[in-house]
């Protein structure tokens, strides 16, 4: 499974970079959106393959049954039968945060499009670059 995940990460990440390098701001926003997916998948892949080592089915979700750690651990360490909860916790906040960041980014794009009347990055770059004498 890790390999499948890695290929997904590679493709999604590659596409998002391709979009980020584009000229128009809407594509850029979509690139950022995809970047979030790629990062989340990458973190999730760190929990290892969800397939049980003996190949029989999948591991359990990271939920204990009435606080019984021993049952989850089943004699050994719990993570041999259960997926790693830590990446999931990290991603959960990341999803919500990425929503907020997306909204903020899109708002910025709206405002900048209204101010400059363009969605082209190269056009934006030509404007208001401080001249050295001002920067000094």
């Amino acid at each position: 499974m890790t390999f499948v995940m890695a290929v997904c990460v590679a493709v999604v990440f590659g596409v998002s970079i391709y979009m980020l390098l584009g000229r128009e701001l809407k594509g850029l926003a979509m690139g950022v959106f995809l970047l979030g997916h790629a990062a989340n998948l990458c973190i999730l892949a760190q929990s290892g393959s969800p397939v049980l080592p003996d190949g029989e089915g999948l591991k359990a979700p990271p939920v204990l049954s009435h606080g019984d750690y021993e049952a989850a651990a089943h004699g050994g360490e719990a993570l041999s039968r259960m997926v790693d909860p830590l990446p999931q916790a990290l991603i959960l906040t990341a999803i919500v945060i990425s929503f907020a960041v997306m909204a903020f980014l899109l708002t910025l794009i709206i405002v900048s499009a209204r101010k400059t009347n363009t969605l082209d990055i190269n056009e934006l770059g030509k404007e208001q670059l401080p001249t050295p004498s001002q920067a000094h």
Partner: peptide, 13 residues
């Protein structure tokens, strides 16, 4: 970049 990132994902995992 995609290849590098996918590669890193595997190595890290």
């Amino acid at each position: 970049m995609g290849i590098a990132f996918g590669w890193m994902t595997i190595v890290a995992a």
